[in-house]
């Protein structure tokens, strides 16, 4: 997979943690999924038909997921933007530091391509950082998808390809989780009038 696509995926993940508007974040996530699927299609020559199928499913994810997220955004309109716990530069610096730390700490994973290994681990950690740093349920949902894209990046880069059964299964599970999370985001919005999860802090010991 070309390093341009991999770097673009990283930059778009950082974009999701920085941007204020949900619509822009959806575009960034869609573009990231698109970059992943193009990379998978690049790798599909000489591999099994199952891998090609998985690559096309990834491509459909780049279209279907943003559409689902856009529909969710329309159904959960925010009267005003949720106030962020920290500024965009702080979030960017935090996520960047986390990713660099992971790159420094994680030993070779066996892929033989350290750039992809580092990028995949960094994407998973940036996804986790998005969940931690962004208060709106909607952005936390995007964080889950960013982390999953990191996993998919590593999976499609496995020599000979990871079993397409696993890739399709993981995508099905992602679709299931995203659907449930979208239902939750909608219910949280209708209960609170906003998607700000900071207001869900009743359960403490």
């Amino acid at each position: 997979m070309s390093s341009v696509l991999v770097n673009a995926m990283l930059a778009l993940a950082l974009g999701v943690i920085v941007v204020r508007r949900r619509s822009v974040a959806i575009i960034a996530l869609g573009a990231q999924s698109l970059a992943l699927s193009i990379g998978a299609l690049q790798l599909s020559s000489g591999r099994s038909g199952g891998f090609l199928l998985a690559a096309f499913v990834l491509l459909s994810k780049a279209v279907v997921l943003p559409a689902l997220l856009y529909a969710l955004m329309r159904r959960t309109r925010e009267a005003r933007l949720v106030v962020a716990a920290s500024g965009p530069l702080v979030r960017l610096a935090g996520a960047g530091a986390l990713a660099l730390f992971a790159v420094a700490v994680v030993p070779p994973l066996g892929l033989g391509n350290t750039h992809i290994e580092h990028a995949a681990v960094a994407l998973v950690l940036i996804g986790i950082a998005i969940v931690v740093a962004r208060r709106p349920a909607f952005f936390q949902l995007l964080g889950l998808v960013v982390a999953e894209n990191g996993l998919s990046l590593l999976a499609v880069s496995v020599p000979g390809g990871l079993s397409y059964v696993i890739e399709l299964g993981a995508l099905f599970d992602l679709a299931l989780v995203v659907t449930v999370a979208a239902a939750f985001a909608q219910r949280i919005h209708s209960e609170l009038g906003t998607g700000d999860t900071e207001l869900l802090r009743a359960l403490r010991d």
Binding site: L151, L154, S163, I166
Partner: peptide, 14 residues
């Protein structure tokens, strides 16, 4: 579970 899946992919790679 995403972190666990990362572990599974690392196993699959090797």
């Amino acid at each position: 579970l995403s972190v666990a899946l990362l572990g599974i992919v690392v196993l699959a790679v090797n």
